[in-house]
């Protein structure tokens, strides 16, 4: 047990952090990707994340079944998404402003309803032990993977395929790129966007369930610490591409672990800098991948336009 890993602890911690910490980013960014592909921005996913975390924890505690909690978290996210989807599509309503209102509403509602659930301990989601072959307890613990994370990893290519090769995916893209053309095709823009926002918000709710039922695995009001908003930004970073959302989320999850891991092996200078490493990495990648010769590829044509 007390085997000292030394410097090997850093890559191990980054690996473990990737497997443990990236799921909330992944779910929220996939949800936002779907939402934005349909031409609306939903900043309110931070609220859905908190609401999902709260409702998952509460239901898991009340029923004793964490998986029911996950489902209810999805439904709670969907309900919040429904409000956003309806409001943001009213004439002359700005979706960013509605999104900010939804952050405040969702988190306020979660805090209000979550008061009685801070104290009790709810049953947690099980994990799959991929490291049981190893004799090192550190590796064994690092390779514990939540089935919810695997689900998220599977959703990414599925969504990619959905956008590229299915009729419905085409409809979502059409509504997001050129609403006029979509209307001419006889598609209800309102319904497509409402559904996209609701499904996206449900994914964010499931991400919240991961926070409260797996890692860090408890319900407190500070549980998200802004991860929902960061994930929304990740979508731009990932160029509205679900697979890139996956890579970006893994990068963020792993980078989160750098600061604490370096301090635990005795690198104790500049820890504020190391704690900021996810953001520094993002900036670096943005700088490397940007080019003055082309505009942002993949951005939906009608993103964020308000209807008259």
């Amino acid at each position: 047990m007390s085997a000292d890993l030394g410097w090997w602890g850093v890559p191990l911690a980054i690996l473990a952090g990737t497997l443990r910490g990236s799921a909330p980013f992944l779910f929220v960014s996939l949800g936002e990707c779907l939402t934005e592909k349909s031409g609306k921005i939903n900043l309110g996913l931070e609220g859905s994340l908190l609401m999902g975390a709260m409702s998952a924890y509460a239901i898991s505690y009340l029923t004793g079944s964490p998986w029911t909690g996950v489902i209810v978290a999805g439904i709670a996210g969907m309900a919040l998404g429904g409000i956003h989807g309806w409001l943001a599509q009213q004439p002359r309503v700005n979706d960013v402003a509605v999104g900010i209102a939804m952050i405040i509403f969702g988190s306020g509602l979660a805090f209000f309803l979550g008061k009685p659930f801070i104290q009790p301990v709810a049953p947690q989601l099980p994990s799959i032990a991929f490291g049981s072959w190893s004799s090192s307890p550190q590796l064994e613990s690092a390779l514990r993977v939540s089935p919810l994370f695997i689900l998220g990893v599977l959703i990414a290519p599925l969504m990619q395929w959905f956008f590229r090769s299915t009729r419905w995916g085409l409809l979502v893209r059409a509504v997001g790129d050129s609403p006029d053309a979509a209307r001419a095709m006889g598609i209800s823009i309102f319904k497509v966007r409402l559904l996209s926002i609701m499904v996206g918000s449900a994914l964010a709710g499931v991400g919240g369930a991961f926070l409260s039922l797996y890692y860090p695995g408890s319900w407190t009001e500070r549980i998200s610490s802004g991860q929902g908003l960061m994930a929304v930004a990740l979508v731009i970073f990932a160029r509205w591409n679900p697979m890139q959302c996956l890579y970006a989320s893994l990068l963020f999850g792993g980078a989160q672990a750098i600061g604490p891991a370096l301090q635990s092996v005795g690198v104790d200078a500049y820890y504020y800098l190391f704690n900021a490493s996810p953001y520094i990495l993002t900036l670096l990648i943005m700088i490397i991948t940007c080019s003055p010769k082309r505009t942002l590829t993949g951005v939906p044509g009608a993103l964020g336009q308000t209807q008259e």
């Binding site: 602890g9 911690a13 473990a16 952090g17 443990r20 910490g21 613990s141 926070l211 890692y215 860090p216 695995g217 408890s218 407190t220 500070r222 549980i223 610490s225 991860q227 989160q256 672990a257 600061g259 604490p260 891991a261 301090q263 635990s264 704690n275």
Partner: peptide
Amino acid sequence: PVREAEAANS
């Protein structure tokens, strides 16, 4: 919370 959990695990 997330960083505290990361620190505890490290």
